[in-house]
C-alpha cells in the first residue's frame, strides 16, 4: 500500500480514489455526507501548492482548506511517474 497520499499532494488535473478520512467526528461526518466516502473518485481542479484547493467529486466542485485536505487520504489507481518525487519527500519528512 505505498500509493496512498494526503489529498493535498494530488496535482491539478489528477484523479484518485478516496481511501480514508482522518480527523474529528463532525469533520468526517460532514465530509462523508458531501460524498467523500472511501472508494469515491476525486479530481483535483486547482492545487496551487499553498492555500485552499478545489476538487471535483460526484459532479460537485468543492473548495477546501489545505489543512482539511491533509486529513483526507487518497489512493492512486496507477502510480504515475511524477509521484515518485513526492513520495521520497514524504519519506524523508
Amino acid at each position: 500500500m505505498n500509493n496512498i497520499y494526503p489529498l493535498s499532494e494530488l496535482k491539478t488535473g489528477e484523479t484518485a480514489l478516496i481511501q480514508e478520512l482522518c480527523g474529528g467526528y463532525s469533520f468526517r461526518s460532514r465530509l462523508a455526507a458531501l460524498g467523500f466516502t472511501p472508494g469515491a473518485e476525486i479530481k483535483m481542479v486547482q492545487n496551487l501548492g499553498h492555500g485552499p484547493l478545489i476538487v471535483s467529486l460526484r459532479d460537485t466542485r468543492i473548495a477546501l482548506g489545505r489543512g482539511e485536505a491533509q486529513k483526507i487520504l487518497i489512493r492512486l489507481e496507477k502510480e504515475p511517474l511524477c509521484h515518485s518525487q513526492v513520495k521520497s519527500e514524504n519519506a524523508s519528512a
Binding site: F27, R30, L31, L34, R61, A63, L64, G67, E68
Partner: peptide, 11 residues
C-alpha cells in the same frame, strides 16, 4: 467550539 473546517461547495 471545534475549528470551523473550510469546506464549501462551488456551485
Amino acid at each position: 467550539g471545534e475549528h470551523i473546517a473550510f469546506i464549501m461547495e462551488l456551485p
